[in-house]
């Protein structure tokens, strides 16, 4: 059914299955699916070496729509299953698709541990700040006051910030994008795939049915200028011009503090030279950027942090290689005879 030959040029269609996509019309998941398919086509990915592992939830249906290897597992456990896949075969390119409920609530523990182990995978956390598949309950990322089927008077629990959780667990690649950043998302996904180690990508995703437009103000075509910033390594942190307009604002460290502040170019003698240059290897800056929210700050998108660290796959492999080196005879018969043994002679011996 699947042709084993890889054509010279791949298109997103080559990564699509014949399965009817069953997300609600207008769901942000469609754009993400398209973007992932485009990225894999652009990168000429080998679909036979690509695996999508997911948990449970709307987003977790993702693997059924990717013509690669795929494993739709159980609620919250995709990171653990993916770790096992990588342990069996570190050559595979493994993507984890999860959501805010799947990854941060029921499966929060596994998310922390795959990150701290730095298993070479990409984690795409679709954050729609709601439980979709179970019909609209508040999720661990829902803003306080969110009215939902389980919180009709508004939720009272403080939300988790996925990026802070990932950084707290020691993530070495952290990025944020959104379903509506159709043009920008592929570059973020490419960077995640190219990163050796566990790459964590929060994707703000609109649930049109249960939590429509929570990110409307600062994502996509209709986003209000000044409410978002796309960061790029080595480039000044400029924003606020709207689409296709030159930026009018910048971000700098507020003199005499450890805080960031928004400055307007040309005001009080501020020029581009006063604005911070994004350094993705700086975890402190990444934390500050990740924490920016409106109305005082723009929401930051792009690769916020990336700094290589030893990868779990390599540590496991070198541990194996060392053990083999130290054990010249790896036959089980030799192993069984190791340590204290004794001979029992037969009768008449």
């Amino acid at each position: 059914m699947n042709a084993p030959t890889t054509p010279a040029k791949l298109t997103p269609k080559d990564f699509a299955t014949d399965q009817e996509v069953r997300w609600c019309p207008g769901c942000g998941d469609y754009a993400i699916l398209k973007s992932v398919q485009k990225v894999l086509a652009d990168l000429k990915a080998d679909k036979d070496k690509t695996v999508f592992v997911s948990g449970i939830g709307c987003s977790s249906r993702f693997p059924y729509y990717m013509d690669t290897y795929g494993f739709h597992t159980i609620h919250g456990r995709a990171p653990a299953v993916a770790t096992g896949v990588k342990m069996a075969n570190p050559e595979l390119d493994v993507w984890i698709v999860t959501g805010d409920g799947d990854g941060l609530s029921i499966g929060g523990n596994h998310l922390l541990h795959i990150i701290r182990r730095n298993v070479d995978t990409q984690i795409l956390l679709f954050n729609n700040e709601i439980y979709g598949l179970t019909k609209g309950q508040a999720s661990p990322t829902s803003a306080i006051g969110t009215r939902s089927s389980s919180t009709p008077e508004g939720s009272v629990d403080a939300p988790l910030d996925p990026i802070k959780v990932a950084m707290g667990a020691g993530a070495r690649f952290v990025a944020r994008t959104a379903d509506k950043w159709i043009k920008e998302m592929p570059d973020v996904l490419k960077a995640a795939r190219e990163h050796r180690g566990c790459a964590f990508v929060e994707i703000l995703q609109n649930c049109i049915v249960y939590n429509d437009a929570v990110f409307g103000e600062f994502t996509g075509k209709e986003a209000v200028p000044g409410t978002y910033i796309h960061v790029e390594h080595g480039k000044p942190l400029l924003f606020g011009g709207g689409r296709n307009e030159p930026p009018v604002k910048g971000i700098r460290v507020k003199p005499g503090t450890f805080k960031l502040e928004v400055v307007t170019l040309g005001e009080n003698g501020i020029s581009e030279a006063d604005v911070l240059v994004h350094d993705k290897t700086d975890p402190v800056l990444a934390g500050l950027l990740a924490a920016m929210t409106g109305p005082d700050f723009p929401v930051a998108f792009g690769v916020l942090y990336e700094d290589a660290a030893p990868v779990h796959d390599d540590s496991v492999a070198s541990h194996k290689a060392d053990a083999r080196k130290k054990t010249p005879d790896v036959s089980i018969n030799a192993l069984l005879k190791r340590g204290r043994t004794w001979m029992v002679e037969g009768p008449g011996a």
């Binding site: 592992v53 494993f71 597992t73 159980i74 456990r77 653990a80 299953v81 993916a82 770790t83 096992g84 896949v85 990588k86 342990m87 069996a88 075969n89 595979l92 523990n109 596994h110 922390l112 541990h113 496991v316 541990h319 194996k320 053990a323 083999r324 130290k326 054990t327 790896v330 089980i332 192993l335």
Partner: peptide, 27 residues
Amino acid sequence: TAYGVTTHQAEDEIAAACVAIGASYGG
């Protein structure tokens, strides 16, 4: 380890089962 066994101390019991299942899926 030298005899073809890779071990993994998981973060919890569920993860341990899931790592094993992922490994079986992986061959």
